[in-house]
Design a protein around this nucleic acid. Structure first.
Length: 406
DNA sequence: TCTGGGGTCCTAGGACCC
DNA sequence: TCTGGGGTCCTAGGACCC
């Protein structure tokens, strides 16, 4: 009977920074400078009071001793590849479930192999990973979170109730605050309370994902291990919050234009085309209004997607309401290489247009993504970039190249 | 905790059809 | 002419994760 190991990097992004610059060790460090909010924090930063998502300006003011770094995803991804290579040296069935965590199928409760993997990770990468070993993925995850950082917790079947009776429901993987509150009202407080429920009871009160968690907590393998390369994207999205909030239609459309440019750039990078677009407005009160629309044909061309958005915008926009963010999600993705043989002329035309945007993508990589952009995105950019006088509607899909860069 | 950004999956209800 | 039953597909929205 196989068992599941869960490995979880400790403060991974920051740990990578410390690994390549040992002088940072022991200091409060955060990454996310480029986004203006703390993305990852070292345990030292956590200890002095820095929180995830905290604005960088606030961190500088309240905790001036903190070292603030921009994220270097390329470096983290290289560390991630080495992490997986080390794990695969010991096991063949590995599920990559994130840049810094994975599930591994092992033959039995063998702490030796787990310690060997963790030892190699420590020596070769200078990174620590917390580990959990149990019968199911959910229980292995309980184990890896039990003692962080650098902990290793085995949960054999006969000791499951010991751990679960000490674990509040909301700490279980897959149970968020909403579900926890609902289950609390039904009298369930700990993970053990849930695990002890009868089959008839859970059929009456829980939905499918919750029933699966129940089953996993009881040691029955329900979440299969998905081995192999990461599945393709189901969707690609781009959202952005702006300050101050705005009620102005033309500004919101411009923000959506910018969202579409970013999302479609990613689409092209992965040679994908979208069949549907969903766009949303988020109000000052954190209400979401969204609508999903079919695109006339699969495309990665921002102008085509924007035509559709403009057409449906008034279905969700309400004058007088103030909004704080816009977002765009591209759905029902297909590979562009598959579509290339398509007989419809329109699609071919779209692919040609796509080639123009691929050239723009190259310019963007060389000179920055703001060197070339759609004029319809102009109003969403900082004022110093938007000094050229343009009327948004007239410039809709024309290109504004070059000089706004400065 | 006054709340950023990019993802995934599930569900309920409506539309539509036979 | 005032109305059954069941299936499938679509979509808006909810919940969760990192």
């Amino acid at each position: 009977m196989s068992v599941i190991l869960h490995l979880d990097g400790d403060a991974f992004f920051v740990a990578c920074e410390v690994a390549r610059n040992p002088r940072l060790r022991g200091q409060p460090v955060v990454t996310g400078q480029e986004r203006g909010i703390a993305c990852a924090l070292s345990y030292e930063a956590k200890a002095i009071g820095v929180r995830r998502g905290m604005p960088i300006t606030q961190i500088k003011r309240l905790y001036p001793q903190t070292v603030i770094l921009p994220s270097d995803y390329r470096a983290y991804s290289l560390y991630s590849q080495r992490f997986y290579a080390i794990v695969r040296h010991y096991a063949s069935r590995v599920e990559e479930s994130g840049i810094d965590e994975c599930f591994v199928e092992l033959d039995d409760f063998d702490a030796g192999i787990v310690n060997a993997i963790r030892h190699d990770l420590q020596i070769e990468l200078n990174l620590t990973f917390s580990a959990g070993l149990a019968n199911t993925k959910v229980l292995a995850k309980v184990g890896s979170k039990w003692q962080k950082p650098d902990g290793f917790t085995v949960i054999p079947p006969e000791q499951t109730s010991f751990f679960l009776s000490r674990l509040p429901l909301e700490r279980v993987w897959g149970i968020g605050p909403r579900t926890a509150t609902r289950l609390n009202k039904l009298g369930l407080i700990t993970a053990a309370d849930l695990a002890q429920c009868s089959h008839t009871w859970i059929c009456d009160h829980l939905n499918k994902p919750e029933r699966e968690i129940w089953s996993e907590l009881r040691g029955q393998k329900t979440h299969p291990l998905t081995v192999g390369p990461r599945p393709d994207y189901q969707s690609i999205s781009h959202t952005r919050t702006f300050v101050p909030p705005s009620a102005e239609q033309s500004f919101l459309l411009s923000c959506l234009s910018r969202n579409v440019e970013s999302a479609s750039r990613k689409l092209r990078r992965y040679n994908l085309l979208a069949n549907r677009v969903k766009f949303s407005l988020k109000t000052q009160n954190f209400c979401y209004y969204s609508i999903e629309c079919k695109l006339i044909y699969p495309t990665a061309t921002p102008a085509k997607i924007l035509t559709t958005i403009n057409h449906h915008f008034n279905k969700i926009f309400r004058p007088g309401i103030t909004y704080r963010a816009t977002g765009v999600t591209l759905n029902n993705l297909v590979s562009s290489t598959q579509i290339e043989q398509d007989m419809f002329g329109q699609v071919n035309k779209s692919l040609q247009l796509n080639n123009i945007f691929r050239i723009i993508d190259r310019i963007g990589r060389r000179y920055g993504s703001r060197s070339v952009f759609l004029a319809s995105s102009l109003r969403s950019l900082p004022r110093r970039l938007a000094k050229t006088k343009l009327t948004n509607d007239k410039m809709e899909f024309s290109l504004n190249i070059g000089e706004v860069l400065k």
